[in-house]
Amino acid sequence: MFEARLGQATILKKILDAIKDLLNEATFDCSDSGIQLQAMDNSHVSLVSLTLRSDGFDKFRCDRNLSMGMNLGSMAKILKCANNEDNVTMKAQDNADTVTIMFESANQEKVSDYEMKLMNLDQEHLGIPETDFSCVVRMPAMEFARICRDLAQFSESVVICCTKEGVKFSASGDVGTANIKLAQTGSVDKEEEAVIIEMQEPVTLTFACRYLNAFTKATPLSTQVQLSMCADVPLVVEYAIKDLGHIRYYLAPKIED
């Protein structure tokens, strides 16, 4: 028996919004420690890794490890039927071929349930090694989204250059060149507005704008985003999900032809 309950459907809606542009379907691996999802996008350029800890749920029970392959378009249709403040419960029997998603209004006067067919997805799992990153940048998630959106107008690629002074995002194309520099913030009143750079050595890497923009669909989940970079390894873009877990996106760098 698997049962997981969250106080607010809005969290699950935001999580789905953060992955459904990259993935058509995905396997949710459930165990007593929580729910994990790891999947590459269709082009195998990026990897999404979602971790939801069992202690972050209002109720969590998972008697046997369970892999639930879900069509994310179908799940989005179901979640559209929930009000943001509804409770949401996911339930499945062991070895079941369906999952039930139930919404309850705050006053318990409206209860709706949706049964969704599960899929058998033959998904590969990739082992992600620990990396000592050269640069780790923490910055406001909305600022990162804004930069990715703005620079995508100028080029398919964005160059991220990080030094101890700051981080520079550049794009160059037919229109010309765009550069956006962010300095590390001195003192800020609000932690969520800070730009913090931890640098071992400077790094310059090039990434495809369309993937960065897809990652920023996670912006509503978190006030801050963390970018971890190292030469010749994938960029890690991480959004914390408060009291519940995190979503990490890995993006392979572009290399010169």
């Binding site: 195998h44 350029v45 990897l47 990739l126 495809a208 390894v233 890995y250 572009k254 032809d257």
Partner: peptide, 12 residues
């Protein structure tokens, strides 16, 4: 040139 993400990580 865009590299694939699976060229960086091992399949398990």
């Amino acid at each position: 040139m865009q590299r694939g993400i699976d060229s960086f990580f091992k399949r398990i």
